[in-house]
């Protein structure tokens, strides 16, 4: 993946947090992970096909997702359904918004949400996998991108 392509994803994440929370998010220095990355409490997975093939994931701690859900819904966003769903919707929004840079041949799947790190599911991240830390308030999530 080119540096400019990685920057396109980072810009989308910054815009996402600005729009949803009205707050700025701190993006960490991206790095390449050789092995399977560690997954946090919830992970939103988007399969990529078409002009590029691979996968995009957002993996987050529960507390961060709960705070994001509350930003959207207020106290009604505290339930389990909202918390699990928000990570899938975040991944979907990041991948979908990236089509502005990648074009309509960058096809995205519907999101799949993983709870924890299930051993029976293989995520099709194409190496090298780029990991981008996302620091928002007290919590750290990771954007994982593995594209051919």
């Amino acid at each position: 993946m080119l540096e400019t392509e990685l920057k396109a994803f980072i810009d989308v994440v910054i815009r996402y947090f600005s729009q949803v929370t009205g707050e700025t998010v701190a993006m960490g220095v991206p790095y390449v992970k050789a092995q399977d990355p560690v997954l946090l409490d919830f992970t939103g997975v988007i399969g990529i096909s078409g002009a590029r093939r691979g996968c995009l994931c957002v993996t987050s701690p529960r507390e961060m997702l709960q705070a994001l859900a509350e930003s959207l819904l207020g106290p009604d966003g505290r339930d389990e359904a909202a918390v699990a769903d928000v990570v899938g919707e975040m991944a979907n929004t990041i991948a979908g918004n990236a089509r502005e840079a990648f074009g309509s041949a960058f096809m995205i799947s519907v999101p799949v949400v993983l709870h924890g790190a299930p051993s029976d599911i293989t995520i099709k991240l194409k190496p090298p996998v780029f990991v981008v830390p996302i620091q928002w308030r007290a919590w750290r999530s990771f954007l994982l991108i593995g594209l051919e």
Binding site: N97, F102, G103, F106
Partner: peptide, 9 residues
């Protein structure tokens, strides 16, 4: 109402 941000969509 969609996340798809390309002009073609």
């Amino acid at each position: 109402i969609t996340a798809l941000a390309d002009r073609e969509t």
